[in-house]
Nucleic acid binder design. Structure first.
Length: 530
RNA sequence: GGCCCGUUCGUCUAGGGGUUAGGACGCAGGAUUUUCAUUCCUGUAACACGGGUUCGAUUCCCGUACGGGCUGCCA
């Protein structure tokens, strides 16, 4: 990274990171709409905003875009904030986070937008429109590809097509109206996108977007321009679905006379379905049985309720790491990144242009890596709830040792219980298929002899067990293979699991011997019965 | 339909005018291990197509195809 220190007389210094120029005091915002659970793609957008802010010493702002009264869903805002907290993407400013540019909820800023809409009205960049939804519908069905624009607005009912007296009369009578942006004809809008370079639009292709709705609320277009301006946003990092409407946004900046200080745009590629085509949707989650939301969401119906990465047993940092790599790369082979490493390595320039397929297997791999790398104490804290949910309250020492034995054998948090429940309670299922091959007529006697031998042990550690059992086998001219598989099944019921000696040591002398006894008592009939 | 964006192994991607096109996930095989897992090794597999430009193109340009986004008083 080259750094250019400009003289103090300059208002702002600039520095370059891999060719993209950043200014000082970077301010970015994550601006979700509280219409339901936050999509995983939204989490990635939040992440990239957060990373740019952290990398540059800038400010990460949360702004709630709740201008749609109809689609507003109670609880969605809490969900968004809980998600950010779970992921560790804590806003510097936002509702409940403080900041000097609030309020950060757009519904609390209604009056501000009206003021700015008025300004556009006065400067001739916007106009009143009285067309009812029905009339618009009629116009659309009467004409294919109907667009409310320079070629059609004279035919519609608005302050451009009607005499001023009539407009005033309608206004005075309290007839509902919207305010539309008057898109100029024959101009070009050039956008310098940080990810896509130059993108051009012809204003003749653009329609006169509604900027203030009949209920007095702004649409996204107006609100986001005004707020980004007032909140001094320097970089707009958002999904590609916004690229098309960016032309309108530039036109709004132009109309307000703010174009020169407009924020920089970076439009992120979308996250696509795991299989097939199209962008990832909540339906994919239920269809494939995979989480596509960070946290579970309880909707009004079963169809509107979804599981989340957290509930599936993902560690937040593993999910973040996975998401970071979906559309961005560090330019080298490193894949595992802590959040702070991500902050250092992140650059907008390394974000790809093409959409990225959502690959749950890769996510699982990341989770496995994070579990294996985590120390036993921290891991125990994550695993404890799963064990307690099954009615067990192990002490920390035991649980940590358990985590240590299991962590190389799991990919998701629930696997700890599912693959290792027998550390907490009696074996429920015995692998009778293996047992019937291994349990010989003389096995019972061998196990009984081992029981007696182990019963004499003073110290029940893995190392001591190892020595004792090796000695036992040697005495009888047996090999590991003659005993250990049986011992494993006696203790755990399954052929899968940690080293037998470690398992025994953790189970303890008393419990281990009890299981040996149980094996001797039941294995004969178990095999006979199957 | 119109406008906009995109296209390297099945997936995530590196790379970039001359390379054995690299890594990771997955999958397959092997080594280690009493089992499973971990770890290690090996293998599998890609520059969408057609024209240019060029001594040479996967890389640059133009088309085509395919995919995606937008096209609401939704965000």
């Amino acid at each position: 990274m080259q750094r250019f220190n400009l003289t103090k007389c300059c208002l702002s210094a600039y520095f370059f990171t891999n060719r993209i120029q950043y200014m000082d005091n970077i301010r970015v915002r994550f601006a979700p709409s509280p219409t339901g659970a936050l999509h995983i793609g939204g989490v990635r957008t939040a992440l990239y905003n957060y990373l740019l802010a952290r990398k540059t010493g800038g400010t990460f702002i949360l702004r709630i875009e709740d201008t749609d009264q109809v689609r507003y869903v109670p609880g969605a805002e809490d969900y968004i904030i809980e998600t950010l907290r779970w992921c560790g993407l804590i806003p510097d400013e936002g509702p409940g986070f403080g900041g000097n540019y609030g309020p950060y909820r757009q519904s609390d800023r209604k009056a501000i937008y009206q003021e700015y809409a008025q300004q556009l009205l006065e400067s001739g960049h916007a106009y009143y429109a009285f067309d009812t939804p029905e009339e618009l519908e009629a116009a659309r069905s009467a004409q294919d590809n109907f667009k409310y624009d320079a070629t059609t607005r004279e035919l519609m009912r608005n302050s451009l097509s009607m005499p001023q007296t009539e407009v005033q009369a309608l206004l005075d009578a309290g007839v509902p109206y919207v305010i539309r942006l008057k898109v100029p004809a024959g101009e070009e809008v050039l956008i310098h996108d940080l990810i896509r370079d130059e993108v051009r639009f012809q204003t003749n292709e653009l329609d006169d977007k509604v900027i203030l709705k009949a209920d007095g609320m702004p649409t996204y277009h107006l609100a986001n321009i005004v707020d980004d301006r007032l909140m001094k946003i320097t970089h707009v990092i958002r999904g590609e679905e916004w690229l098309s409407s960016t032309a309108h946004h530039v036109l709004l900046y132009r109309a307000f006379g703010w174009e020169a200080e407009m924020p920089r745009f970076a439009h992120l590629p979308l996250i696509l379905k795991p299989s097939g085509k199209g962008k990832l949707s909540k339906r994919d989650g239920v269809q494939l049985g995979i989480p596509v939301f960070p946290l579970a969401w309880q909707g009004d119906t079963a169809e509107e309720s979804f599981t989340g990465f957290r509930e599936a047993g993902f560690l937040p940092h593993a999910m973040i790491n996975f998401l970071a790599m979906l559309g961005w790369n560090p330019g080298n082979d490193q894949e595992i990144f802590s959040i702070s490493e991500l902050c250092d390595a992140f650059t907008l320039e390394k974000i790809g242009k093409a959409g990225a397929r959502f690959d749950i297997d890769k996510a699982r791999w990341f989770n496995q890596q994070y579990i294996m790398a985590m120390d036993d104490t921290s891991l125990a804290a994550h695993v404890r709830p799963y064990i307690e949910a099954e009615g067990h309250k192990p002490d920390n020492h035991f649980l940590e040792a358990f985590c240590g034995l299991m962590k190389e054998r799991v990919t998701l948090l629930p696997d700890f219980w599912e693959n290792g429940y027998y550390f907490f309670e009696a074996v429920k299922i015995f692998d009778t298929a293996t047992l019937s091959k291994r349990w010989k007529p003389e096995s019972r006697e061998m196990m009984l002899a081992l029981y007696a031998e182990l019963n004499e042990l003073d110290v029940f550690s893995a190392a001591d067990l190892h020595t004792a059992i090796d000695r036992f086998l040697e005495k009888r001219g047996l090999k590991h293979g003659d005993l250990l598989p049986l011992l494993r099944i006696a203790l755990a019921g399954t052929m899968k699991g940690p080293a037998v000696f470690e398992m025994m040591a953790l189970l303890g002398c008393e419990e281990s011997l009890r299981r040996l006894q149980t094996a001797c008592d039941t294995f004969d009939s178990l095999i006979a019965g199957q």
